[in-house]
């Protein structure tokens, strides 16, 4: 069958309804102007937001804290955080921290990063935890042939690791909790392997003054390594890398053998890498601002050009 069924809709760029609606010659120009104002306003708002954010980021502050082996103040709790990044070459470590009551699991993680000087954990825009101590450098919970590669969250307060189907942003810690993170490759459920350091009570220094036995620890990780040494090597900007008398630093500040007794070292190589990466990113910030300024200059030129065009067509 031969049809030319589309003839009424073809060939013409005029609309099918009366054109009285459209009979407003100046409105194209004013509309264009308004569009450009919208664009300019969006750019201005963005630049303003970026400026405010950069100022806020610049003025981040440090809080005071008590030592993990010393007496606790009111509304303070003592928590052990185990981080196992052995699969990424980072080793496993346990860290005792004194934090305010009501601290969430993610705040604890951030606190650990600032105390050890290994940087803040990296999160994806969805809130998924991507990296601890800068490991892995790229990617976030990616899926490949072996399943998901991600930081699995565990709770060890009961004495054995329980896979945490809990949101670390909302989980409130209580005194004596043991939290664990391990970088795993797995199905993303409770079958995924727990951290290689067992959630023993002996991880708390004051509860076990003598050197404790760590179960299920692979030979690659040194049990007796000193955390303060690693942290001192990795963070030249750290305010108090060692010494009993410091008032600021709770973990590394205590005497070796007491608070760091249950801590296996983060391998110095990895810590050095992290420190390098962070210093690199601060150096290139100026270059990034220049690039952003260039692109917004480009956008301003486009907006100006569009404005001239709409003026001309008026």
């Amino acid at each position: 069958m031969v049809r030319s069924g589309l003839a009424p809709f073809s060939g013409s760029n005029t609309p099918e309804w009366p054109r009285t609606v459209n009979h407003q010659p100046p409105s194209i120009a004013t509309k264009g102007l308004r569009q450009m104002r919208v664009l300019q306003a969006m750019a201005a708002v963005f630049v303003g937001v970026v400026a405010v954010v950069s100022m806020l980021v610049g003025s981040a502050s440090n809080a005071n804290a008590s030592s993990c082996s010393g007496p606790l103040a009111d509304s303070e709790i003592r928590v052990v955080l185990v981080v196992d990044s052995s699969d990424l070459g980072g080793g496993a470590s346990a860290t005792c921290l004194v934090v305010p009551a009501g601290t969430t699991g993610s705040q604890l993680l951030a606190r650990r990063g600032s105390e050890l000087g290994t940087g803040s954990p990296r999160y994806g825009s969805s809130g998924l935890l991507c990296a601890i101590d800068g490991l892995p450098a790229t990617g976030c919970g990616d899926r490949n042939a072996g399943g998901f590669e991600y930081w699995a969250y565990f709770n060890g307060s009961s004495g054995s690791w329980a896979y945490g189907n809990i949101n670390p942003f909302t989980r409130r810690l209580s005194d004596g909790d043991i939290e664990g993170w391990r970088y795993v490759q797995g199905a993303g459920n409770g079958q995924d392997p727990p951290p290689r350091i067992g959630p023993s009570r002996s991880l708390f220094p004051a509860l076990a003054p003598s050197l404790p036995e760590l179960p299920a620890l692979p030979a690659a990780n040194s049990v007796t390594g000193s955390l303060s040494g690693a942290s001192g090597a990795g963070t030249p900007t750290s305010t108090a890398p060692s010494g009993v008398d410091t008032t600021v630093d709770p973990i590394t500040g205590a005497a070796p053998g007491a608070s760091t007794s249950a801590t296996s070292a983060v391998e110095p190589v990895v810590v050095a890498d992290v420190a390098l990466a962070s210093s690199r990113s601060t150096q290139s910030t100026t270059g990034r601002w220049v690039g952003i300024a260039a692109v917004f200059g480009l956008i301003a030129v486009m907006a100006g050009g569009a404005w001239v065009q709409t003026r001309r067509s008026r």
């Binding site: 609309p15 450009m36 963005f46 907006a303």
Partner: peptide
């Protein structure tokens, strides 16, 4: 999610529209 690139995408789309749209509703 790079805001600079996203703003540039919006600007490019707007620039092309202003340059080449027809006078239709």
């Amino acid at each position: 999610t790079n805001p600079v690139l996203l703003c540039l995408i919006i600007a490019v789309a707007g620039w092309v529209v202003v340059s080449r749209r027809a006078d239709v509703p």
